[in-house]
């Protein structure tokens, strides 16, 4: 095939325009989901578990009493456990609640190590899971530096007390974790935990949009991320 010089220029010009346009459109339409946790607001509700219950009920997460076999998508830890070495003994953050969930990292080590691509990074930033592909090697659990992943050491079904028929039930032998409620996002609803929080302490939003409430919050308030030095780029921020 031969292309005249003019046609070539036209083509490259078009391709360039196309790329620019895609980028511009991407900035408007392609979201990058992230979350901010307002620690002070969360702290006002000492024994609240509403977000946990909402998430675990929506996603058929089993309530297994044995701590060793526990499965959890979102849970609470004292701040100093979630941020080891970052909270000194004089800090007012000691004992403050840190709601923990998968950070949907920008460079997720779990995705890097998974030998079957059963966990992968979506365009919108969500680190997703395919429970039908996972072979249960638990390599991702060794790789995640946040303890965000749970393994089904046994059949979870007997431990799911109010099964939600809309959401798949996992089997024994697969890994699971928070999915940022991708099933709800796809129908335009916010994540279950965000909706359930009475204090509005969980703010979910689009990092790609500079005008999103999330971005404005991050611009205005001091915040930390878990173990930023590892370069994983967590997309869950803690407003302190």
């Amino acid at each position: 095939m031969t292309i005249s010089r003019q046609a070539f220029l036209r083509l490259t010009g078009l391709a360039y325009l196309g790329a620019v346009a895609r980028k511009a459109i991407g900035a408007i339409t392609g979201p990058r989901w992230a979350m901010a946790v307002d620690v002070a607001k969360c702290r006002t509700q000492q024994n609240c578990t509403k977000c946990i219950v909402a998430c675990h009920e929506a996603h058929n997460v089993p309530s297994i009493p044995d701590r060793r076999h526990e499965v959890r998508w979102v849970w609470r830890e004292p701040f100093e456990h979630a941020f080891p070495g970052q909270v000194d003994e004089y800090s007012s953050l000691r004992g403050a609640p840190a709601m923990l969930l998968c950070n949907h990292c920008e460079n997720p080590p779990c995705v890097q190590v998974c030998p079957t691509q059963a966990t992968w990074k979506r365009e919108d930033g969500i680190v997703a899971m395919d429970w039908h592909r996972c072979i249960g090697c638990r390599y991702c659990m060794a790789a995640c530096p946040y303890g965000s992943r749970s393994f089904n050491w046994m059949d979870p079904q007997p431990y799911v007390h109010n099964p939600n028929p809309e959401f798949p039930m996992r089997t024994k032998g697969v890994v699971e974790k928070c999915t940022f409620c991708s099933e709800r996002l796809s129908v335009g609803r916010p994540p279950a935990c965000v909706e359930a929080c009475p204090e509005k302490a969980l703010v979910f939003g689009n990092l790609a949009d500079p005008h999103s409430p999330l971005r404005q919050l991050l611009a205005a308030r001091q915040h930390v991320r878990r173990r930023p030095e590892l370069g994983t780029g967590p997309d869950v921020f803690y407003l302190t």
Partner: peptide, 16 residues
């Protein structure tokens, strides 16, 4: 060690 040994072939079906 695998939780889902029946799916062992996935390592070859989806080479990563």
């Amino acid at each position: 060690d695998m939780g889902q040994p029946a799916r062992v072939l996935n390592v070859m079906l989806y080479p990563t």
